[in-house]
Every structure is written in structure tokens, then in C-alpha cells.
């Protein structure tokens, strides 16, 4: 009985002493935190996704307050959060701020895809890609098993006709789908630019014509229509997204295979 009481007393007393010590120390060694850090941390989405490059949202707030990261650094919060942080920091949001989203560089739905063989392996893009591209004739296009759809933490990707579709309102350009796609057909682009090349094929035009109705054939019509924006490299049109302010629309109408989309 004695030992029972003694052990309760000792543990209770030790706990009490340490609690008191810690309480006193917390008060005595209090460090003043920049109030801006707390204010910024309260605004942030709190997803701790790490897409900004900082170790979590609080670390982002600390580094913004120190001026190490620009106020529009939070890709999830977008312009709205950037403006709020700007009002705390007393900085204007730069006028060249553009929301970025993930864009899919393939336009072939399941019925457009020509198959050379039937694939019955694991229903994952990563597996199909290693097995001769899942029997797909196109060595560059979407495999359609939705690895990007599975990995998206914000529910921004839906699969329509075997092709991922990005919801621009939900997409935060975190880049998880870019990394998940084994064929590298997703990239992060400025949302308001108004043009995306929906093809990744570097095959010569004649070959693309045989296997895909919506592939880029490298005809250079877009390059002639809007030379500031489009460039055909390796039989594939690419967009120079730094050419802001130039309207890319004329080429969209002229593209013979309609592989430039808004």
C-alpha cells in the first residue's frame, strides 16, 4: 500500500513541478513574433501542400514577412490571397500576375486512339507506359487510365472519354499531376492565355495523320498565323507563353486538325 501511494505521489509531484517550470519558462522566455507572420498565416489556405517551396504554410508566412518570397507565392490561394497578403505587407500585387493551371497536351479521346494491341495489364498509366505504351499506336499521347485523376489532391481533374479534363476553378497548379503522368503530357500554363496545344506527338505529320485524327501534324499554319506565339519544333507546335498580350485566337480557327484548344 505504501509503495502504491509513494509512486502516485512521486509521479504526481514530478509532473506538477515540471508543469510549473514549463509554464514559468514559457512566460519568461517568450519571444515576440512579428504580428505580420500571424496575420499572413491566418489568411493562407492551410493545406501545407508545399507547392510554394516553403516547408508548410507557417514557414511560407515567416518567409514572406522577411521578404524572401513574393506575396503571390502561394499557388493555392491565387490572386485573392496575394491581394490580402499585399494589404498586410503594404505591397501591391504585380500587374503581370497570372493564374496558372494544369493543361493536358493530348486531345485524343478513347475512340480517337488507334490501338495496335489489346492491353489487359494493370489499369495504371505508369504500368501501361512501361508495357509498350499499352498497345497504343501513338507513342506520346494520353493512356487514359487516370493516374493524374487519382493523384490530384483538389479533385480538379475528371476523366471524360478517357481524357483528363482540368477544372480551372479547382486547379491550384500544385504540379502533382505533372509528376504523375508517365508520358509527361501535362504541364502548368497561364490560365488566361487562351491557347493550349492538345498534342505531344513528335512523329512526322504523315505518321500522325495515319494514327490520330486530332494530332499535330507540324504543318506550321499556326506559326504563319501568329508567329509571336507559335513555333513548330520537332514536328510539334509549341506556344511561347511569355508572349503576353498577343491574341493567339486566329491560329485556333486555322489549325487543320483542331489540336489547338482554348
Amino acid at each position: 500500500m505504501m509503495i502504491f501511494l509513494a509512486s502516485i505521489m512521486v509521479l504526481g509531484l514530478l509532473g506538477f513541478v515540471f508543469a510549473a517550470l514549463l509554464g514559468m519558462a514559457a512566460d519568461h522566455f517568450r519571444v515576440e513574433v512579428d504580428p505580420k507572420v500571424e496575420a499572413i498565416a491566418a489568411i493562407l489556405p492551410g493545406a501545407n501542400c508545399g507547392a510554394c517551396g516553403a516547408a508548410g504554410c507557417y514557414n511560407f508566412a515567416e518567409r514572406v514577412a522577411l521578404g524572401e518570397i513574393v506575396i503571390s507565392g502561394c499557388v493555392v490561394g491565387g490572386k485573392e490571397v496575394a491581394e490580402k497578403i499585399g494589404s498586410i505587407m503594404g505591397v501591391e500585387v504585380p500587374s503581370d500576375y497570372h493564374k496558372k493551371i494544369a493543361a493536358v497536351h493530348c486531345g485524343a479521346t478513347t475512340k480517337d486512339r488507334k490501338k495496335l494491341a489489346r492491353y489487359e495489364g494493370v489499369a495504371k498509366c505508369s504500368a501501361a507506359h512501361q508495357l509498350r505504351g499499352g498497345g497504343l499506336a501513338c507513342g506520346f499521347g494520353c493512356l487514359g487510365f487516370g493516374d493524374c485523376f487519382c493523384v490530384c489532391p483538389f479533385d480538379a481533374i475528371s476523366m471524360e472519354g478517357g481524357l483528363p479534363k482540368v477544372d480551372p476553378d479547382k486547379c491550384t497548379s500544385c504540379g502533382k499531376c505533372v509528376a504523375a503522368c508517365p508520358r509527361r503530357i501535362i504541364s502548368i500554363v497561364p490560365h488566361d492565355f487562351g491557347a493550349v496545344i492538345a498534342c505531344s506527338s513528335k512523329d512526322p505529320g504523315a505518321m500522325v495523320r495515319k494514327i490520330c485524327p486530332v494530332g499535330c501534324i507540324g504543318c506550321k499554319i499556326c506559326e504563319k498565323a501568329v508567329p509571336e506565339v507559335y513555333k513548330v519544333v520537332d514536328n510539334l507546335a509549341v506556344i511561347d507563353y511569355s508572349a503576353q498580350g498577343v491574341d493567339p485566337a486566329p491560329a485556333i480557327a486555322k489549325c487543320p486538325t483542331k489540336c489547338i484548344v482554348k
Binding site: 508543469a19 517550470l21 519558462a25 514559457a26 522566455f29
Partner: peptide
Amino acid sequence: SLVQLEELYLK
């Protein structure tokens, strides 16, 4: 408790 205390002090 001690490590907590050290952390507070070091900070």
C-alpha cells in the same frame, strides 16, 4: 519536459 525547457530557452 527538459527538452521543452531547453527549446524555450534556446529560442
